[in-house]
Design a protein around this nucleic acid. Structure first.
Length: 669
RNA sequence: GCGCCCGUAGCUCAGCAGGAUAGAGCAUCGGUUUCCUAAACCGGGGGUCGCGUGUUCGAGUCACGCCGGGCGCACCA
């Protein structure tokens, strides 16, 4: 953990600048802390002297030297050196490493200034009408990593998965069962009980799309079905409810394979039946956030005015584009649009709706703890539930195409007098997952000319084109299983299987996190199957090797880790100080210490590729170290003890980095 | 038309709040295993950071303008 050191250094530098140059503490430039290119130059680099050169009318070199001279002792810092204008600090290596080891598994100190408001993260939110695909995996991998990293930073998080059980996608599958397959509820139940239901619906959904395509008049069936579902109290609604329930259970199983979990499933149908929308509409009207348009093409609709940043209202009026700046919330036929329902949900999340759901236990995890779901009325015998909703901050993990609507949610919050909530209403957006030409062909898809002209092929549920999440995990698990069996022929099959599953999770989750979220991923099955180089399994392998050293230490020398490391206080430090063969050992320790800094940066910038790259880079650093510096076979006692200490800290930190990404560490690989 | 995102090695991508010599993986060429797991390690070749102007002691990073590509701007969800 390096951030406490950063904080202390910043504090001391600030105090020194105030004292030395009479500068006001609040008028100082931000104190940037970097890392020098090599450990020989130092451990922390501060370019603050460059920043002050103009103001103090002095050469940076001189300022750096003055600060170095005036800084005085800083606990944990052994030496300060001005180099070419930089202020370079050297840490007390022994104190640092023994201190980190003593801190043990605690490590999760929330920063004092981090806001500890209750935070809701909504992610996954797959239409409950067919199997999850790789695009959904990007959503849940990003969302779950956000959740884990926030919790690591000490933020209390509630994870929600929104279920759109009353939308057209569910209606389409209902249409498929009724019109194409002539099934009633009993028949559908039988199918659900005897097939991979989410896979079955995947194919059926594609067939329904074709069926509509053949005769557009058939779309009226969809509309009628949708209305019947919204009304409730009929068999159509019962069928829809059954399908949604079953598919959601499939999705939860798929996500559990990925180590993705939820606190609450919030159902759109409940929002409607509990009249959250009616209440939302009242609030919007009271606050004047919506109005009834009386003329033009939107006559008869309740609309919200849209503030466009970067353009003035005058300019819009001059251009005669007034109507383009209004978003329909309630249609002229009185029904609410998707945005309206989303507003109701968002208001509830922030606790500004003045209503709440009832709750039921939807399912139980392996450990017996309940997964909660919203419901319409009290269910007798339900145990006490945690307080849901009422958050101070909300992250909605949704792809970038929803940016416009997410912006409207923020504006609605402002419009009803909640600017603070609007500010803390964050759209955590990301680009889509497409397929490479190669992978699309492998799936048996023939490329159209239009497809061939582009560098990738878009996933399409309507065409049934895509890689199902479970299929992908199965293929990866099989491949990993072969590799495990090859390397560990003595392993019992079920244990090999468990290990393979963990490797598959690492492969997928790392792949989904490693790219910037604003980057479109062209998914390639062959690339995903590669466990070498920059991959999740590579990182796992590094930890497994590190763990193996301590395992061997126990097996061969019958000495435990703690016992082996206990004499460090009186062990000569030449090895640690770089006196024997350079600074590689210390470099590993310092890099391992940066986990908290990287987690902080990831949350601040909402960019989790930095976490992935950090973990990979740290694994690389270790692998190189492992190759060069033997531990069990090292004859010099002091050298092997310090090396073991570094590896101990390293594995603790990299295990932590992996756990932020939801990736387990296998016992063997 | 307006808004947002992307453009860095042959390919796929990192590059943090501007900071020391622009990095990784893949591909390619060459090397390493009586030694804690070769899912590893070491080395070679490969760059006008889309173009231009500006700000700065310093720009891949910031600002503005272009060029190229993607997405969004429904009484769909």
């Amino acid at each position: 953990m390096i951030l406490p050191v950063h904080d202390l250094v910043r504090e001391r530098i600030t105090a020194t600048l105030v004292r030395q140059y009479g500068l006001a503490a609040d008028a100082l430039p931000a104190i940037v802390i970097d890392y020098p290119p090599t450990r020989a130059l130092g451990d922390l680099a501060l370019p603050v002297a460059f920043e002050l050169a103009r103001r103090l009318r002095k050469a940076p070199r001189l300022i750096a030297e003055e600060i170095a001279g005036a800084l005085g002792e800083i606990p944990g810092v052994s030496r300060v050196q001005a180099t070419g204008g930089y202020l370079n600090l050297f840490l007390d290596r022994k104190a640092f490493l023994t201190g980190r080891l003593a801190a043990g598994t605690v490590g999760v100190a929330p920063r004092p200034r981090s806001q500890v408001v209750k935070t809701i993260v909504e992610h996954t939110a797959i239409n409950p009408n067919k199997a999850a695909h790789i695009g959904h995996l990007r959503n849940s991998a990003l969302g779950d990593t956000l959740v884990r990293t926030l919790r690591f930073r000490g933020v209390p998080v509630e994870v929600q998965n929104y279920i759109d059980d009353t939308g057209v996608q569910v209606a389409d599958v209902v249409v498929g069962f009724r019109e194409l397959e002539r099934q009633d509820l009993a028949g559908i139940r039988a199918i659900a009980g005897s097939t991979r239901f989410d896979f079955y619906c995947w194919d059926l959904y594609a067939r329904v799309a074709d069926w509509y395509e053949e005769d557009k008049a058939r779309l009226t069936t969809r509309l009628e079905t949708l209305h019947a579902i919204e009304r409730g109290g009929n068999e159509t609604a019962e069928i829809a409810a059954f399908i949604a329930d079953r598919i959601v259970r499939c999705h939860l199983k798929t996500m559990a394979r990925m180590n993705v979990d939820y606190d609450l499933l919030s159902w759109e149908g409940d929002i409607l039946h509990l009249h959250f929308w009616a209440r939302t509409f009242e609030i919007l009207k009271e606050k004047g956030a919506v109005f009834l348009q009386s003329e033009g093409r939107l006559a008869g609709c309740w609309v919200m005015r849209i503030d466009e940043e970067g353009g003035t209202a005058d300019a819009a009026e001059e251009a005669g584009e007034d109507e383009d700046r209004e978003k329909v919330i309630v249609r002229s036929n009185g029904t609410v649009t998707y945005v309206g329902k989303d507003m109701a949900n968002q208001f509830w999340k922030f606790g500004v709706l003045g209503r709440d759901f009832h709750y039921r236990v939807f399912d139980r995890r392996e450990d017996g703890t309940p997964i909660w779901a919203t419901c319409r009325e009290e269910v007798p015998g339900t145990p006490a539930h945690p307080p849901f909703g009422g958050a101070g901050a909300v992250f909605n993990v949704i792809d970038v195409r929803q940016s416009y609507l997410q912006k409207l949610l923020k504006q609605a919050l402002v419009a009803i007098g909640h600017p603070l909530e609007a500010e803390r209403s964050v759209h955590f957006s990301y680009e889509m997952v497409a397929l490479t030409h190669n992978t699309a062909r492998q799936l048996g898809y023939t490329l159209s000319d239009e497809d061939a002209a582009r560098p990738f092929v878009e996933v399409s549920g309507r065409k049934g084109l895509g890689v199902k999440a479970d299929d992908l995990l199965d293929v990866l698990t099989k491949k990993a299983g072969e590799e495990v069996a090859k390397r560990n022929p003595d392993l019992p099959p079920d244990e090999a299987r468990r290990i393979a599953e963990g490797i598959a999770v690492a492969a997928v989750r790392y792949f989904m996190i490693r790219f910037s979220r604003g980057k479109l991923i062209a998914f390639d099955i062959d690339e995903a199957l590669n466990f070498e180089g920059e991959s999740g399994p590579y990182i796992q392998y590094a930890v497994v090797r590190a763990n193996n050293i301590f395992q061997k230490l126990r097996d061969r020398e019958e000495v435990g880790e703690a016992e082996f490391l206990s004499p460090l206080g009186s062990t000569p430090t030449e090895e640690l100080d770089g006196g024997f063969e350079g600074h590689d050992l210390w470099a590993l320790v310092l890099e391992a210490a940066r986990l908290d800094e990287v987690a902080e940066q990831a949350v601040r910038t909402l960019e989790f590729s930095v976490l992935a790259k950090y973990a990979f880079g740290l694994a690389q650093t270790f692998n190189a170290f492992y190759h060069r510096f033997p531990i069990l076979n090292e004859p010099r006692d002091d050298a092997r003890r310090w090396r073991a200490a570094a590896v101990s800290y390293f594995r603790h930190q990299l295990t932590g980095a992996l756990s932020l990404m939801g990736i387990p560490v296998p016992p063997r690989m």
